[in-house]
Amino acid sequence: MENTIEIRNVTKRFGDFTAVNDLTLNVPKGSIYGFIGPNGSGKTTTLRMLMNIIFQDSGEINIFGEKYRQSFKDRIGYLPEERGLYKSMKVGELLHFFGKLKNGKNIRSESVRWLKKLGLEDWKDEKIETLSKGMGQKVQFIASVVTNPELVILDEPFSGLDPVNRDAMKDAVLELKESGKTVIFSTHDMDIAEKMCDYVFMIYKGKKVLDGTLDSIKDIYGTDIIRVITGGGMQVLKEVQNEVKGIENINDYGHIQEVRIEKNCDPQDVLKSLVAKTQVMKFEISKPSLHDIFVRIAKPVADHVGEVQNAG
C-alpha cells in the first residue's frame, strides 16, 4: 500500500520537555487517519511537524514518498487547532488570498462550490468579523481545501460546532476521502473517530500508544464489556460485583451500566447472578468502544500506560 506520509523515529523536544518521542507512523494514501490523545499529548506538535512549521530534532518525515520540500505546502491543506482569520477581510477575498498563497487553480469557482456546500454562499461578500464562530470555522476549513490539495490535515475540525454544522463538516471530510484525498484529523470526539476513521493513532505523553484499524485495536482489548439494563440498576450490580470474581469495573450511565470483566471471568456467571436478584432487560457482550480504550489509557488504572498497542 502506498503511503502519503511516513514518519520514522521522530523526536521533538521543547527544552527539557519531550513533546514527541521516537514516533513512527505510516499514513496510507486515500485513508482517513484519526489522531487521538489527551490535551498536551503531542498531537498538534506532530501535525505542525508534518506541515514543516516546526522541525523535528531527530528522525525523518517523508511526504508523498520524498523528503519534505517547501513546495509540498501547496499540496497540503491545513486547518490549525486555533483558528486564525483576518477579521477585516471579506470571506471571498480571504479565500482567494489563502488560495493564491498555495498557488491554487480555479480558486474562485472552488470557493463558490465549497461555500455553497457548507451553506455560506450568502456570506461571500461579508467581513469575517460578522461571522459566527461556527461559520468562521467552516470558512477556515474551506481555506484549507480550496486549492484541492492531495493531503488534508485538520487539527480538531469538529470542536465547537453544533450538531448541524458537525454533520456538514463530516460530509465535507467524507467527500474529500471519496475524491481520493488523504485526510488526517485530530479529535477528542471518540464517536466521530470511531465512525469515520479508517485508522486510529493515539499518542499519550509524546509516545504512540495505539495505531491501526479500529477493529484491530479493539481485538487487542478483547470482548470484555457487558452492557446491562436491569430493574435494580447500580445497586444490584454492586452486589453482583461482590459475588462474582473478575468484575474489574462498573461504569454507570444512569439508564445503562457497562461492566468490564477480566479475561478469566465468565459472563454467564454475571448473568446468573443478575437474574437471581432482579429483572434483566438487556445483557449485551461487546468489544470496548474507542472511548473506553482512550479512557483506559489516558486515565490509567492498570498497566496499559506506555504500552504500544500496535495493531496495524
Binding site: Y78, Y86, K102
Partner: peptide, 16 residues
C-alpha cells in the same frame, strides 16, 4: 495581532 489571533500559523501552513 497575527500571532495572537493565530493567523500566522495558517499562513505558515502555506509558506515559509
Amino acid at each position: 495581532e497575527e500571532k495572537s489571533q493565530k493567523i500566522s500559523e495558517v499562513i505558515l501552513g502555506s509558506c515559509s
